[in-house]
Design a protein around this nucleic acid. Structure first.
Length: 269
DNA sequence: ACACTGACCTGCGAGC
DNA sequence: TGCTCGCAGGTCAGTG
């Protein structure tokens, strides 16, 4: 589930659910979910309280008393808040027992997600070489112009590049390009100034609408804590067979290792 | 430096 | 029914 709007939804929900809860114990069932030494991870977190809740790109940032817990959900990571007595399925990889008696459980079918503990003074502006947030003042048409100089990769791949702009994934990249009437396979070297301005505007508009809708839920994914999005109802290309604007058949093309949906009629460029 | 490929994992639906 | 194949909302290392 996780692109920027879904991660934002998870962060805001957890903020309400577990703020000020202390971690009493940690049960780890799949050690590889932890970056670095699992023993150190557990030692640093036990006794710590969840204080602040934020996001950088698709990374969840939990500000604890003396450290920051960083989580990336990758493709299928999700959190649940459950009773310790509730049955655990085989895809639960780590459980945090909280001071209120509930358990924060991390489930990840494909085991791609990762979490780690980092110092409080970590420079999240440059964390993992992430680019600007889409809503920041740094994300402008001129920024796009400068960043794409000397590059000729498909514009779809540009939007998926997290060091270009942080938080866009496969669904929203398709939706943004559809809203801008740009084909995903178009070389970024051929973007016009109007295209660059449209990308900034539509990226913000679409992500904002998606956050308001609680994210996007596709392919019968089971919902996680606070995330059963409704934005899929507003999608104009991704996952569709027919363009809702003109009725043309939506094309699916393999671009940059991801399937990309577009309308050949509405996205001429 | 840039751009593409494979690896990391499991499950589900399509097609035979 | 049962099998294999392709695909899934992400990222990083490795390769020309």
């Amino acid at each position: 589930m996780p692109e920027l709007p879904e991660v934002e939804t998870v962060v805001r929900t957890l903020e309400h659910q577990i703020q000020n809860q202390k971690i009493k114990a940690i049960e780890l069932f799949w050690p590889k979910v932890i970056e670095g030494d699992p023993k150190v991870f557990q030692r640093k977190l036990i006794g710590q309280r969840f204080q602040t809740f934020s996001r950088r790109g698709k990374y969840l940032l939990f500000g604890m008393d003396d450290c920051v817990l960083v989580v990336h959900l990758r493709m299928e990571g999700k959190f649940f808040l459950q009773m310790p007595t509730a049955p655990r399925n085989k895809h639960i990889h780590i459980c945090f027992l909280l001071s209120n008696g509930l358990e924060l459980r991390y489930q990840d079918t494909r085991k791609f997600g990762r979490m780690q503990v980092v110092p409080k003074d970590t420079d999240f502006a440059h964390f993992h070489d992430l680019g600007p947030e889409p809503f920041s003042d740094a994300f402008t048409a001129e920024y796009i112009h400068q960043y794409r100089k000397g590059k000729r990769l498909p514009v779809k791949s540009l939007l998926l590049d997290q060091s270009f702009v942080a938080g866009i994934g496969n669904i929203y990249a398709d939706e943004i390009l559809a809203a801008c009437h740009i084909r995903p396979g178009r070389s970024c070297a051929r973007l016009t100034r109007k295209n660059e301005e449209d990308i900034v505007e539509e990226t913000r508009r679409i992500l904002k609408a998606a956050i308001a809708a609680g994210g996007t839920t596709i392919r019968s994914y089971t919902s996680s804590l606070g995330v059963t999005g409704r934005f899929q109802l507003s999608c104009i290309v991704h996952g569709l067979k027919v363009c809702p604007q003109c009725g043309s058949e939506i094309k699916v093309k393999w671009i940059g290792g991801r399937s990309s949906y577009y309308c050949p009629q509405c996205q001429k460029v």
